[in-house]
Write a protein that binds this DNA or RNA. Structure first.
Lengths: 199, 199
DNA sequence: GACAGACACGAACGATCGTGCTATTATTCT
DNA sequence: AGAATAATAGCACGATCGTTCGTGTCTGTC
């Protein structure tokens, strides 16, 4: 790994952190350069455009998400345990991953949902994949006999996403200290409702 | 109502619409002026700063929210009917209110959760009030005998918010045509779980 | 030890940002 | 109708934005 690649990675590390608080658009090359002790043009030369910087920032975060959430979750036993692992890792991945502004994907989702372009396309593909993976994990819980056969995996995935989003909202904006506890409770309710009723 | 007030309202109408797509920060005085056929300084003089424009935009949207969601919901019968009315109005209030970029409050929430200032304070107070109102409506369903006594109103309110947020997310970013249907299904599940079980 | 390539810097560009001033035109009130 | 007031336009400012270009400085190779 050459020196250029090293600084590029360092820039992206910081970029993810900054973008989590000010968004991908609020992300500024001048600011990034200042905080990395680089000149604007020196930093810019690593990415040939701002859009490229934004996309690479998303990719960088996605790689960390795969390391910190997806892979550990898939290492858990199929079925309900894997769902619990995914949820737990997902819940505190912004903290673990050094994103002081909360999950970058949530910020980017709201920011880009109206802004066509390569960055949006990238994020959409990413998030669709993640939701599909969640749905598949739920499907596994059905075939494993943990969940009822009528459980709709896509429904469960969207519901899970809602639990996460409302937790972020209550926690970050409203600063509700009970947000996390309620999110866990909501998760338990979802799981209980999906389980095969014990006679 | 003088002429100044009329144009101010017209500006705010448009400002809400624009901010819903590009955010309160992406909202720009120059753009707003161009689209309203006003000079930058002419428009600016109505608000003495950009922060004031942002706050008034939030207030304007809040007033419409009260008209289109809160008041009609409170007009419904106390208990479960009122919850259903609130949810239904809430679901399609961005459409009804001419916000092409989806709910302004959602966009502002993600944008401002890290940016201290008067705009954030205003939004936080607003959203806390709305969540408290939702919780109160749920409390009404309990005292009315529709919901079980153990139902936690604040939990229900946060869960409801999650249903809305994940619907917006799936609908607007992922363009999932089933997002609305799933949100309604999730709502029904929440209500059913809270009801007094019929023997 | 000359040379090539990678890497960073400094200066400058056109554009746009928010925000003041000063006129000038519209509107409202007596 | 005329005077007082409100609303808008025009212009300029300093700052910052993304981007380009030319130049210097290392590092490693033949």
């Amino acid at each position: 790994m050459g020196k250029g690649e090293i600084t590029r990675q360092a820039i992206l590390d910081h970029s993810v952190s900054v973008a989590s608080t000010v968004g991908l658009d609020g992300l500024t090359i001048g600011r990034l350069a200042g905080e990395m002790a680089l000149s604007k043009s020196g930093l810019f030369s690593h990415f040939r455009s701002k859009e490229s910087l934004q996309i690479q920032t998303l990719e960088h975060a996605a790689a960390r998400f795969a390391d910190l959430v997806i892979r550990p979750a898939l290492a858990a036993h199929r079925g309900e345990p894997r769902i619990r692992a995914a949820f737990r890792r997902w819940m505190d991945w912004p903290k673990k991953s050094g994103m002081p502004g909360g999950c970058l994907f949530v910020a980017a989702a709201v920011e880009l949902d109206d802004q066509p372009g390569a960055a949006r396309d990238h994020l959409v593909a990413q998030q669709r994949q993640w939701l599909a993976l969640l749905a598949n994990v739920v499907r596994g819980a059905v075939t494993e006999g943990h969940f009822r056969a009528e459980v709709e995996p896509e429904q469960f995935a969207q519901d899970l996403y809602g639990v996460m989003l409302s937790c972020f909202f209550s926690h970050r904006l409203l600063e509700d200290p009970d947000a996390g506890r309620r999110a866990r409770a909501a998760f338990e309710n979802l799981v209980m409702a999906a389980r095969i009723p014990q006679a």
